[in-house]
Design a protein around this nucleic acid. Structure first.
Lengths: 189, 189
DNA sequence: GATGGGGGAGAACGGTCGTTCTCTCCTTGT
DNA sequence: ACAAGGAGAGAACGACCGTTCTCCCCCATC
């Protein structure tokens, strides 16, 4: 049998697969049970409600996103390259089978209006990423507003890639980001 | 009593308000009936299923979006200004009460995986807008890829404004777009 | 070896949803 | 005046969903 920690991880991973592929409300708890191989009773002993499970799934996605961005940045020498590395990370992600856009944006559109906890989780995730980019922008000696410009390209790339299924979006977003960084640098001391 | 045309418009407008505010699956057909003041029997005589109603709502949103973009562009003298006018349109929209992001992105995240008709409607809308921007970019004598860069900023601005509730996003997106147009122009013959 | 508690399988429960049906009323045409 | 048909109100239906409960088995402890 699985201890609570392992059962929790199994259920969250299974729910993530299903929620991401089909949307949250289209997936019943019984489908989660079948995918995870963990009984409903056990699931409800770990997550008091479906909403708790959704929040846990988003927390998992935040950890994965943060790790991915950090790994992509690890191979970059300068702050500027660490910013652009985000788009390389996106490029690889967009090419994965079953890519269906940003889970946070999807969840926000579906549940943001009815579940404050989900809305808060999404906002916290996006704010943390924005802060991360802001740090990189400052490291590069560029003005703060450039960070928001980069974030807009990241968000736009995710939604556009999800809808068009065209991974080339990431390359164009990277080129645009590079141009924006160049412009900001030229206008700086 | 309302003739079919008027009843249809009333129902679509009511459904649009509810779907946009709460998400499609969170709104039952009975809530649409109450909001529209049109009986369920009548609604189902016009729209054979809820999915048909959703598609009709998206078609309404496409008309509104196209009209808004065209009106914003009408006051602009050059192709470049017509491109940037899109962001002024966004700015006004983001400030509206009840703004909750792009209905197409929201619907795609919620239903795209389970309803091919909804997914197609969203794709068609985004493709039409992309073509529109491409036309403006060509009018401005700029290379095609710039259009995708502008589109990414538009999409990113919508999702970011929805989540952060910060209308200043539109201004920064406009500045970024202007910088990208400048860069593209400088690199052109 | 008895016992008790945790876990699995799945039925059960209360609620909601999309869709259809019933019943009644009102209009319209002759 | 009367038949016919469309439309409204709302009940009804079948399906599903989130959540809980029942029943049974297994294993650890005395």
């Amino acid at each position: 049998m699985l201890d609570e920690r392992a059962a929790r991880e199994t259920v969250v991973a299974a729910a993530d697969r299903l929620f991401y592929a089909r949307g949250v409300q289209s997936v019943g708890m019984d489908a989660v049970r079948a995918e995870a191989g963990v009984s409903l009773k056990r699931i409800y002993s770990i997550f008091p409600s479906k909403e708790d499970l959704v929040v846990a799934v988003l927390a998992l996605r935040t950890r994965q996103w943060t790790r991915g961005v950090e790994r992509a940045a690890a191979g970059a020498a300068t702050p500027r390259d660490r910013i652009l590395a985000v788009f390389d990370f996106l490029d690889a992600w967009f090419r994965e089978d079953g890519f269906r856009g940003c889970a946070f944006i999807n969840s926000f559109g579906e549940l943001g209006a009815t579940s404050p906890r989900v809305a808060d989780a999404v906002r916290a995730h996006k704010e943390a990423f924005g802060d991360h980019v802001l740090g990189l922008v400052r490291d590069a000696g560029l003005p703060d507003p450039v960070a928001l410009q980069v974030v807009l390209l990241v968000e736009g790339a995710q939604t556009t890639a999800a809808i068009t299924h065209d991974a080339a979006v990431a390359r164009e977003a990277r080129r645009a980001a590079a141009a924006l960084l160049d412009t900001a640098e030229a206008r700086n001391p």
